[in-house]
Design a protein around this nucleic acid. Sequence first.
DNA 1: GCGACAG
DNA 2: ATCTTGTCGC
Length: 232
Amino acid sequence: MQHLNYDNLKVQDATIIQNSLRDSILLQPRNFPLSIIAGADISFNKFSTTVYAGIILLSFPDLLPIGYSLIKKEVLFPYVPGYLAFREVPPLMDAWENLPQKPDLLVVDGHGIAHPRRMGIASHFGVSADTPTIGCAKTLLCGQYEEPASTTGSSSPLIYKNEVVGAVLRTKNAVKPVFVSPGHKIDVPDSVDIIKQCIGRYRIPEPTRLAHNMVNQFRLGEIPEGYTALTR
DNA sequence: GCGACAG
DNA sequence: ATCTTGTCGC
């Protein structure tokens, strides 16, 4: 499963792929040890087809960087709400293949099953790479929820078509919450529990926050393309 | 038809 | 997503 290419796909074809991949999603309590967690994100210049993708590995529960993978790639599939995966999964999959070691769980910037067809980018990547994933998005794509209490750690269920597809989690006092939903091989309760343990001093949980900072530095030429295991 | 719409 | 200046609050 590498060098995925969705460049010549039509949105209509993409829908068929999502409906097909959906049957492979596994929603279950975490049944594996968690000592290495990772964050994935991409960055790009507006109007450019070049995307800078990266995955950062962190020790858990310490959340200290222990390695990463960065790769630059051309992507032609456009950004269409509901089809983010067709733009971001291909480059992220390349970064994944180059990681010095695979994490036990990957946190993706975007939704998991909190998606119109229950196939957000976190689920799409998880099924494609056959690895546990959680989606952590900054804004809502679909579903309803009650505003969670304003204190850090508070959450409320995210409902879509009468089903609990995730949770809205307050990661910082009196600050906009984030949207957490399982991607693959994990369930809603465990996803929220793990993301809670990834909260640092910012709104965005450490895995995706550090991944975002890293790919941004990469895009700006402050870090070279490549991969490495960090020594400490 | 109208409004919503991850990154 | 990216760009951008100021401003509010702990």
